[in-house]
Design a binder for these strands. Structure first.
Lengths: 247, 247
DNA sequence: CGCTCGGTTGATGCACATCAAAGGCTGTGG
DNA sequence: CCACAGCCTTTGATGTGCATCAACCGAGCG
């Protein structure tokens, strides 16, 4: 069962060289906190803003890694294909997140995942060289990058700890993880278009199982889905799913 | 079902301040490749070599992280306890691996995992300050650290891709991952004492299931277990387990 | 209007969990 | 020295959560 299908038109990604506006956006991310706009522009020399539509391909697993990216808006999906042809979603990258930065230092490295846009998204692409020649030499920047990686690593670890939990717990955990911005009471919105298949592929389970869990929550009024945008109406109820009674 | 039990005596870890001998060891690791012994000793100022016995506690999940480590010999197990009281093994750190380096930059960070020795092991403990004041400023060192992290991240990703594979594939994948040194033909030895429970806790499955898979391999002559040391007699057969037919 | 895609539901089956029992080994204390 | 407790391993019997298979619906689209 092959997954690859031609994306309608495979839209030639727009390329915009002037990135004045983006600098302001960048200065709002934790990655660049404490840097003035001048420094930021120097750090982004030779950068290119890529504007993507839903499912546009950004990086392809296995190809030589020449660039890394900083997500500006929207979201990107990092995934790989399993030996049996299924898609396995590794990570969802949101604005402010870096993509492929970790492998820049390695000689002849290839992308360890395939990266695709989810919905309309924008990303700033930077050349490998700038990472090796500028970024690496700025301790404050390295610290910020390591913080981002640490967060991501933590997420992996949390998923590992949940491995033996029932499916409902895993789905709840994933959804809650994605909204960890301001945990203001009721009405959290998952900030990216997410199909049930993508959730299943991330958790490594069957679509139908995810659907059974989520449409139940839908009926209970815990969540709401509008055109692939998920809204958590009762966060407390989802948190409750996490405590699956230690027998 | 609580797991915490007093380790017989909880042996007071030996502390040795002179680390002359260790410098030679360190210079053999990829982490310090390209550094002369003088530089290495400066990078390890204030370091302390901890000698541990089987199951000695090194770092405790949740406590403030003041130190990081470089495994010298033996192995260390990074794990967490699940909400239901089971142990979840996140990672096995072998000689040359760094532990807790990634979280050094974060203010008031706590250890994200509990770390215990597996068998007799030695680790070089370094202070947070040295990381922030020296390490971070040396691009070549940062590059090596990021390579180590990249390898670890890759391992997580591989496990994620195998999530839907049958148990036998997962066990095979884990064992093969641990011996990825020189893949010289037949007779690979897993370089750390590993119980079936630890394998199970790493894969997030039941002990009995792991045992059923492995004792089958034992009978087939694919592997051999001597006192918790696993030897892979027929690597090809284990590799064969990975290709679980994409129907 | 046929196509594909995402979501949904029900019937059936299987891989693995769970429970139970037992033997070997090690360290510990009476 | 032996009894005992823990841990690791093993094996069998039984149960179940989720996968799999199949079918259907509505929406968007060329």
């Amino acid at each position: 069962m092959l997954i690859c299908r031609l994306n309608k038109g495979e839209s030639v990604p727009t390329k915009i060289d002037g990135l004045k506006g983006a600098i302001t956006e960048l200065s709002g991310f934790p990655l660049f906190s404490g840097f003035d706009q001048n420094t930021i522009s120097n750090l982004c020399l030779g950068g290119e803003i890529r504007v993507n539509k839903h499912r546009d391909l950004l990086f392809q697993f296995g190809l030589p890694a020449q660039q890394f990216g900083i997500v500006l808006s929207g979201a990107y999906k990092l995934s790989r294909v399993t030996p049996s042809g299924e898609e396995s979603v590794i990570y969802f990258a949101l604005p402010g997140d870096v993509v492929a930065a970790l492998i820049m230092p390695q000689q002849g490295a290839t992308y360890p995942v395939t990266v695709r846009a989810m919905g309309n998204s924008r990303i700033l692409l930077l050349k490998k060289d700038i990472y090796l020649q500028s970024w690496i030499k700025i301790p404050d920047l390295i610290i910020q990058i390591q913080c981002l990686l640490s967060t991501r690593m933590n997420r992996f670890q949390n998923q590992k700890v949940m491995q033996r939990a029932p499916l409902a717990s895993k789905v709840a955990s994933l959804l809650l993880q994605l909204v960890t911005k301001d945990s203001n009471k009721d009405e959290l919105e998952v900030p990216l278009p997410l199909t049930r298949k993508e959730i299943a592929d991330n958790l490594g389970v069957a679509v139908e199982s995810v659907i059974r869990v989520m449409s139940d929550w839908d009926k209970q009024g815990y969540i709401m889905t509008l055109d692939q945008n998920i809204v958590i109406l009762k966060p407390d109820q989802l948190v409750h799913q996490l405590e699956y009674e230690a027998n």
